[in-house]
Amino acid sequence: MARFTTLSAAVAELIRDGDVVALEGFTHLIPFAAGHEIIRQGRRDLTLVRMTPDIIYDQLIGMGCARKMIFSWAGNPGAGSLHRFRDAVEHAVPHLLEIEEHSHAGMAARYQAGASGLPFGILRGYAGTDLATITPTIGWITCPFTGENLAAVPALRPDVGVICAQQADRDGNVMLWGITGVQKEAVLSSKHSIVLVEEIVDSFSPRTNGVVLPAWVVDAIAVVPSGPYPSYAQDYSERASSFYTYWEPISRDRGAFLEWMDQHVLATTNHAGFLESLDRELVVETHG
């Protein structure tokens, strides 16, 4: 049953060294604040799961928190590469990162299988690709009814799923809307879950394409305004696209990266402090 807590307490309690952790969000509602808190608390040897690892995974990798990444598209959307990720894969800096890569459809099927309590998911995909050769978690199964050969992928069962949502009500039910990605599946497939919300409301209003997660499938809820920054929460903030281009040269240079992380993440105690530490121009775009 969901408990209201602080983000730092939730991370301290639920995320352990060596855990499999999925911080999901598809451009929208990315739990940046939770990634920063994991870095502050110095977690190590994590297996990071995400369909679209972006800047926050770049930061976790560059800060040495990750042993392995399971993913389907690793880039800085609209701006370039994830240089800390590339440095780890191309040059083993800060250390070698094991990777397990899929396609989006494959990852989605893996989450769905996890959420459904099934051992594997199926899809019509991967046939003829080199992914099927290099990724051991891609197999094949013959349909017992039609004989069609289909790809099979094992269920994802992360230790902890972390997402952002717009709202929680006072009973701990959670509501998100806009692009909801694979967040519902990330929570339902994980053994434990942490949800960051913009605010607590007395009751939910009906929303087009809204998703509600009942309180009893969530472990911890933390109120973190602008928790997705520089990603966004629809109807609360806009995506700070300029941050993604601003990040490109910082990510490119390991020295600049470490200095930035020191100044903005390690030297701050929480997400409000992180936002406060940024140049005003970066933040204003989202909140101004």
Partner: peptide, 9 residues
């Protein structure tokens, strides 16, 4: 190292 597959396959 390029971004990877995404939705393309």
């Amino acid at each position: 190292r390029l971004p990877g597959a995404g939705g393309a396959p």
